Amino acid sequence: MRRFLIGSAALSLAACSGSADGSRLDDDETLLSVSASGESDATPDTARFEAGVTSYAGNARAASDANAETVRDVIAALREAGVQESDIQTRALTVSQIEYGNRRGQYQASNIVAVRVRDVAKAGEAVTAATEAGANVVNGPSLSMGDPESAINSAYANAFRAARARADAYAEAAGMEVAQVLRIRDAGGWQGGRMIPQAVVETAADASAVPMPRPVSPPPPEEGAPFMAGTTTSSVSVQVDFALRPL
């Protein structure tokens, strides 16, 4: 799905024979600066979550051994659920003595792995497999796209098209036409909860074709419970300087 949003930022018209910033206006051209936004929706295709095991025992060796055994079960269950071995990565491995609470004097061993599921539809199954195998620390899943740049580029293309459409409307109303694109300034944006950094692109050509985990002990979800991927929106803004000339 493609959506076009035209921003409400200031527009400026100024007739001049040139500019200090090297905008390269000809004598009969007028500068038009347009701000616009663009959005693009894409369905996430990758799920990530953390699964871990926390074990307790009277000494460090016993806690570590018990933890390792359960973690092996969790990893085996994840692989049986279709998760590739290369998509399971150890994130934290600790053994420490507890100095407070009901378990004071005991030892705690923890092992947390990060898991990537390349088929979002199987994310719920993978989480269930991990918890049933003994994982008692789960964080996530979070959804993302394997190729986020594709959605971002689509949003930028939409933003530029929106800017060009507004420039054409202004030019028509003024009895002029768009002669060239002088400059494109990238204002960045957001993709889901991730910030898209700004970039700067300049051109003198017409660019109209520019394309700490939280400890929980969750029960396994009911069989057949839906896992909703939804869509992630990429939203960006640009400012484009156009040169207009009389018809």
Rank of each mutant, 00 (worst) to 15 (best):
L31A: 07
I184G: 03
F242Y: 15
A157L: 11
A163Q: 01
P44L: 15
A126S: 13
A157C: 04
L143K: 11
S96E: 15
F160K: 07
Y170I: 09
A159E: 12
A121G: 12
A60V: 04
E202T: 14
P246N: 07
E222Y: 03
A151F: 07
V178H: 06
F49W: 13
D28E: 13
D27Q: 12
T94Y: 00
I98M: 00
A66D: 12
G140D: 13
S237P: 05
S17W: 05
G58M: 11
Y170R: 10
Q191H: 12
D206M: 11
V178D: 02
E125C: 01
T128K: 14
V117T: 03
R104S: 15
V74E: 09
A47E: 14
D26V: 03
I196M: 05
R118Q: 14
D147M: 10
A60Y: 09
R194S: 14
A162G: 14
R79F: 01
G52Y: 00
I184K: 03
M195R: 08
S37E: 15
A126G: 05
R194M: 11
D45L: 14
V178N: 02
A36C: 15
P219H: 03
A10C: 03
I88W: 08
T30L: 11
G101Y: 03
P226I: 06
A159P: 05
A135P: 10
